[in-house]
Amino acid sequence: MLEISKLVKRYGNDEPVLQELDLVVKGSSVVSIVGASGAGKSTMLRCINRLVEPTSGSIRLNGNELVKLRGAALRRARRKIGMVFQGFNLIDRLTVMENVLAGRLGYVSLYQAISRRYPREDIERAFTLMERVGIAHYANKRADELSGGERQRVGVVRALMQEPEILLADEPTASLDPRTSEQIMKLLQSLASELSLPVLINIHNVAQAKTYTERIVGLRHGKMIFDGAPSDFNKDALDAIYGGIEAHDEEITEQPGASPKQGEKGVSNDQI
């Protein structure tokens, strides 16, 4: 269970990016977080595994407070939090297998890490997961030889190698073409249920959020302004989140029951 309460993040003296955010994720649900660019989605996700230092507030994962952790304790907490990135963040010059095994870095010794002598179970797990997502035959290929969708699969497997208690996905499909991004979303959805793993997905594509997740959280200016089931996510919620400032055509047109705004086209890509 993930409990975020009164989370504040402020960069320098600017307006806080997150303003006393509260969020609770129970069980193994797939939650999508939507919001315009700059709404604080990415900051929130990165506060959870502390790639970004929260200014104040509390984040508890299965009862453990994460905000105060330092050094080795922080690293132990991080290895239980898997993360999938928008830009995949693979190490291009290493093989797919090395990238996947890198997910075990929090567990193995420095010698094992450098000599690539990972425990047999880790390698077994790596092959099993890679087979599950269909990239096992690439094990000894260099990561930069793969296509975007394959690279993101490597990213997902790397996160799962951590045996995470929660999976964070920061715009996992934003760098992919529409078809591949559907596949990745499906993959995340089914992996979540297979591994009974809670997943938090930052996502721009509202249609995908509605199709593949069980709960949608809408952020605007660092505050939560929508929290509910995909079926409750209507035109009003969309307007409240994007406020006419930012919405992609595909998102609006796939909005059931809501007529697309005709006049919005011209300004739709004007981000904050």
Binding site: T95, M97, E98, R116, Y118, R120, I123, E124, A126, F127, M130, E131, A136, H137, A139, N140
Partner: peptide
């Protein structure tokens, strides 16, 4: 490793 996924008996190993 060069075999096809799923056709593999026993524990698998991998060396860089």
């Amino acid at each position: 490793r060069s075999d096809i996924p799923g056709t593999h008996p026993g524990p698998r190993t991998w060396r860089k």
